[in-house]
């Protein structure tokens, strides 16, 4: 029995997915030993948040067949919502430092950005994607792609028009001494940001794997006709998927507000990074997207550390191109052809 698991484990390590995860972990550990553990911390925090944005993107692509280029704007909406909810909370806690809101205030802000993200996703479906779905007979992918680019431009400029182009940031969510683990000091905000991302990713994975609705979402992504003939209401699943995907992106924006202040184009960087992740890990693969997020985060952190801050888009994208030459379906692309490979 153990031998069986052993050989299975070995063959997994030898596969592209296993190999890339092992290499990532080794590189992360070596780099942290060489230059300091903050590299590992940065990778984990960036990776966790990137995982949220990239899973949302994967959902949009896998279930709805929309190449979403407005996903960063939902990140922006999330950060904006968190800013406007957290500012009064932080004014209140400055006057009442003993209040329980000091601990829970930031969570309220993040919950608000999640809810507003989900609602704006539903609005986008009702106003933009739904009407297109009813009218578009062919070329759906191209049409929806153009539509998302337009939506992105619209939302960026709406932000600028209504809220102004200045940086709307906060000093930090949780004040107080940084937490120290083995003499490494990590700010409370970073620890919390990672924990929130981890909890959401795990919950999301359970939801997709074991619940009836999660399975229905996967079923729609794999065969839409098959989903219809087993009795799945496609419209409901579409609405749920969009709100879920947008909420994931918005909660990332909300919980990273201490790192990325809200401004009109704040979403573009996470958007591009998330696209790197999705392309690298194979289109429409949720678990692969989580692993891919950490790989891309590590690439970015190491590039900034050893080569220079201006190169953090160049090196990851060059490496992704290199990998795609050898494995065009992405590192975690499955052997079974999915709906998107058609």
């Amino acid at each position: 029995m153990s031998n069986n698991y052993g050989s299975k484990f070995l063959s997994w390590i030898k596969s592209a997915a296993g190999l890339s995860i092992v290499v990532t972990i080794v590189v992360a550990v070596v780099a942290s030993i060489a230059s300091g553990p903050y590299l590992l911390v940065n990778t984990v925090v960036t990776g966790g948040m990137l995982a949220l944005v990239a899973t949302g993107l994967t959902l949009m692509l896998g279930v709805l067949n929309i190449p979403m280029f407005a996903h960063g704007e939902f990140f922006m909406i999330g950060s904006l919502a968190a800013f406007y909810v957290f500012t009064p909370i932080s004014n209140y806690t400055n006057e009442n430092p003993d209040s329980i809101i000091v601990v829970f205030g930031p969570l309220i802000a993040m919950a608000a950005s999640t809810i507003i993200g989900a609602i704006s996703g539903i609005i986008a479906e009702k106003l933009v994607f739904g009407p297109l779905r009813r009218r578009s007979t062919d070329d759906w992918v191209m049409n929806s792609f153009l539509l998302t680019v337009g939506l992105s431009v619209l939302l960026i400029n709406l932000h600028q028009l209504v809220f102004g182009a200045d940086f709307k940031g906060i000093v930090g969510y949780w004040s107080g001494m940084p937490i120290s683990i083995y003499d490494v000091f990590i700010s409370r905000d970073r620890v919390m940001a990672f924990m929130i991302a981890a909890v959401i990713v795990v919950l999301f994975w359970f939801f997709m794997t074991y619940t009836r609705t999660g399975m229905a979402i996967r079923a729609v992504s794999q065969d839409i006709t098959g989903a219809q003939i087993v009795g799945i209401d496609i419209e409901k699943i579409v609405l749920l998927t969009i709100s879920l995907a947008c909420a994931l992106s918005a909660v990332a924006g909300g919980s990273l507000l201490f790192m990325y202040p809200s401004y009109p184009t704040v979403g573009l960087e996470p958007l591009y990074m998330a696209w790197f992740v999705v392309i690298l890990s194979g289109l429409g693969n949720v678990l692969g997207a989580v692993a891919g997020a950490f790989i891309v985060a590590l690439l970015k952190v190491i590039t900034v550390e050893y080569i220079g801050a201006g190169w953090d888009f160049v090196i990851p994208s060059a490496l992704i191109m290199f990998i795609l030459i050898f494995k065009p379906s992405g590192i975690f692309g499955s052997d079974v052809r999915g709906a998107l490979d058609k």
């Binding site: 009836r212 399975m215 229905a216 996967r218 079923a219 794999q222 065969d223 006709t225 098959g226 989903a227 003939i229 087993v230 009795g231 799945i232 499955s334 079974v336 052809r337 999915g338």
Partner: peptide, 25 residues
């Protein structure tokens, strides 16, 4: 219930998951 010519199975799900999806209603 409709069993189509193309079968329209959920290719990335296990046999058991496919069957459970059949009982979605």
């Amino acid at each position: 219930s409709f069993v189509s010519e193309e079968m329209n199975l959920f290719v990335n799900m296990s046999v058991q998951e496919n069957l459970y999806m059949g009982a979605y209603t």
